[in-house]
Amino acid sequence: MSKSRQRVFKGQPTIVICSIVILLFFIIAALAPWIAPHDPVKVDLTQKLDGPSAEHWLGTDQLGRDNLSRLIYGARVSLGFAVMIFVSSLILGTLIGALSGYMGGWLDNLIMRVCEGIMAFPNLVLVLGIVGIFGPGLTQILLALMMVQWVYYARICRNMVVSLKGRPFIAAARVSGSSSWQIIRRHIIPNVQRPIVVMATLEMGWAIMDISALSFLGLGIQPPNAEWGAMIHEGTSHIRSHPELMIYPGILILIVVITFNVVGEALSERYGVVKR
């Protein structure tokens, strides 16, 4: 594994830097309670909309809360939930896709038509609809995003399984006495997992964008908790006097999404994965 990693990143400093940035964001998110200088939800109206100072490096917002601390805690929500969506839709999509591709026939047809139905809508529209039914909140958003994200994994996985299934080594495995389950475990999953994980890296950026967009619309995390998209939303009322309230979280979203895309693109180029 370490050998292949060296080969991927050799002579590509951009990708090394991006990977380090991603890692750094995750470390910051994980250690938020220890490294954040202030309580992110503590209101102090005497210090509202302060500029940068020794105590508040990035100033304070309209309720006198420390911007830096809110950004650090916001990383937790954005990255944490992106990872949860990533893992849950990856597992769900891969399993359903593998089943669909392996079984074939009417089941395959049914699952693929459902996927196409879901893909026919723009993601956000569908999520808005689902959140509209279940009400706003992070859990609902998580479920809604998962319900629309799994189809991409399912489709890719299904197509890979279908093409693998026709390869002679699967027939040879069957002849040598392997059961369907053994074939899936020994031959199919190992051959699809790498491209799927690579594709998932590309999807991570999208997941973060979606969470932020939904929070920006007021459907995700509820105040006073911090989240980047929600912070941009709160900053809109002070856009003329204090644009930095929107700029800070905006820059962070930009950096995270770009780094994930750069790394994902590089990996997919290396492993020849089809993009959606």
């Binding site: 080594f169 027939a171 051959n191």
Partner: peptide, 27 residues
């Protein structure tokens, strides 16, 4: 048992030769 025409795709590219030959024995 069987030997197929396409020797390249008759083997799982991620397995070692010993694993490939050992599969029927393990079963």
């Amino acid at each position: 048992q069987v030997v197929f025409q396409d020797c390249y795709s008759s083997v799982n590219p991620l397995m070692t030769a010993a694993q490939i030959i050992g599969e029927p024995l393990r079963n």
